[in-house]
Design a protein around this nucleic acid. Structure first.
Lengths: 202, 202
DNA sequence: CGTCGTCTGGGACAGTTGTCCCACTTCGGC
DNA sequence: GCCGAAGTGGGACAACTGTCCCAGACGACG
């Protein structure tokens, strides 16, 4: 084990923890499993971080700091309407979930655990504030491209969008029904487009 | 401890387990915590049930068997439109969540745990099939009362409805923002009503 | 070149967990 | 009334957990 400053070790541990949680679940993310994933001796754990819960706090913040939906923005470029844009973005998101279901499961597990843990109960609010901000950015990008008039406030629509993606994900994780998920997305796209008054296109 | 047949003890343990999970979370639902909640000696646990995971299976099935949204149907009686009906039902549901947040958290925790646990991975699909069936019943009740024509298949709309309630619940659990949740419900109600062509009323 | 703070890693600790065993008591059917 | 089956409950076990300690090694700065 080469010499690594504590702050770097801390970051490495957070990444390792996220990997373990994605693969095996939060319950399996013991201190020993995390250091094994990171290739460190056990003692490095409490040298780099005060407690397991504090490391989990790092994990949530790591997740929140990630780009997230930035990868979806390019999809909008192909869209000629709000409905199409919504469908492409939601389909792209579901594809992302399908590619690594464990990652999204990890998000849910972390949120639920944080809600139950005294020292971490403030995290979920941050987490969802970030989600809502990301959704707003995506809606802004679509607006900049298609110039619709929205009949509802953008933050409210963003929250609706996040709620729907969460629910879509939970249902798909539970029954893995691709076709049903696709139909849900179609409906949601129509519903979202219903809040936009689009300008006529050439 | 009076003499109780094993099957009754098993049911009592499932109820006790649900109580513990709702109050303290799934991680706190140890065999000892569950039997303490049920007022039984520890040994009764493995006499009534083969393992902890099998008991959790019982808990999920207990939950799935429960009425659930039946209490929301009466709310529809006051509604004069689909939009109003949706708003009343969703508000009623959120009120239910607000009254006992731990219960809904327990649902999410159980689903996630089951997905990760080899012997229980079939449960979430059942669970969500039940949710979708319940949502369909509620939509049917609204249809019977207001006689709209729906532009989309009822099962698809039911799945959308469940997805939205899940997402609504997750977001509210995270930030406890009542006002934002109410605005989400308003938007969702409009969106749902958008799929209905309502007959003119007198 | 020495020394002091930073980092390493092996080992150990106490607490908790799921599960099991065994001696005991109670009940229903003969 | 008796006896086998069903139910009870105290105690124990091995495994695993988060956390901590301590002796040693390294590297930068004087």
């Amino acid at each position: 084990m080469s010499r690594i400053p504590a702050t770097e070790r801390r970051a490495a541990l957070a990444h390792a923890a996220l990997a373990v949680i994605s693969r095996d679940g939060l319950a399996a993310a013991t201190t020993r499993a995390i250091v094994a994933e990171a290739g460190m001796p056990l003692a490095s754990f409490h040298y780099a971080v005060a407690s397991r819960d504090e490391l989990l706090r790092d994990v949530v913040e790591l997740v929140v700091a990630e780009e997230g939906v930035a990868a979806l923005a390019p999809l909008l470029a192909k869209a000629g309407s709000i409905r199409e844009a919504a469908k492409l973005a939601l389909s792209g998101y579901l594809e992302f979930v399908r590619r690594d279901p464990g990652h999204e499961q990890a998000m849910f597990e972390l949120t639920q655990y944080a809600l139950r843990t005294p020292g971490l109960s403030d995290l979920p609010a941050e987490q969802y504030a970030r989600y809502h901000a990301l959704a707003t950015e995506l809606l802004d990008a679509a607006t900049a491209q298609l110039h619709p008039d929205w009949s509802v406030p953008m933050p409210d629509l963003a929250r609706l969008l996040v709620s729907f993606t969460d629910g879509l994900t939970l249902a798909w994780l539970a029954d893995r029904d691709d076709a049903a998920a696709a139909r849900s997305i179609d409906l949601a796209a129509v519903a979202i487009a219903g809040f936009a008054r689009e300008k006529v296109r050439a």
